[in-house]
């Protein structure tokens, strides 16, 4: 079933790709092939493969149960938030929150997670910013 849905999704993606290819504008520079030929080839391969996956599905993959799936969604969301918050809160603060969440969800106790997170954040800041001189996101507090 999963593969059939995946195949349908692939077909939709290929259709979208064909459409997006067809609206590629021509430029004043012209070559024999043009900017659309190769994307059309790629779209064709996508279509054929999606059809194959749709018609000859593999055995059902080992999906996580609902709780674990929510877990994945939350972890992804936290990392998105982290990316968004990096430039607003600054590297050190944002990293403490994100690391604490991930460490907690991987099985640390809340307090342990917080301590690990502070240590990780400070450690990365010292090694990569102070010693190696990489530019990290600066927050309103300057770090």
């Amino acid at each position: 079933m999963s593969d059939r849905i995946f195949g349908l999704f692939g077909l939709a993606l290929a259709a979208f790709y064909f459409w997006a290819t067809s609206i590629i504008p021509d430029s004043f520079m012209i070559d024999v092939v043009g900017p659309r030929a190769f994307p059309y080839i790629v779209g064709t391969v996508l279509t054929i493969c999606s059809l194959y996956i749709l018609l000859r599905p593999d055995a059902e993959p080992d999906w996580p149960n609902l709780m674990n799936f929510i877990e994945i969604i939350f972890a992804t969301a936290v990392m998105f938030l982290y990316a968004w918050g990096l430039s607003r809160a600054g590297f050190v603060i944002a990293t403490v929150f994100a690391t604490a969440y991930l460490t907690w969800r991987l099985g640390s106790k809340p307090l342990g997670a917080l301590i690990t997170a502070v240590a990780t954040s400070a450690g990365i800041y010292v090694v990569f910013h102070l010693i190696l001189g990489l530019s990290l996101a600066k927050g309103p507090l300057g770090f």
Partner: peptide, 22 residues
């Protein structure tokens, strides 16, 4: 549980350092 978050954070540091773009 300690190692993988560190790996994730170092990945973020690398990409942010490279492009500086959220």
């Amino acid at each position: 549980r300690i190692l993988m978050p560190v790996v994730a954070m170092i990945s973020f540091v690398g990409i942010y350092g490279l492009t500086g773009s959220t």
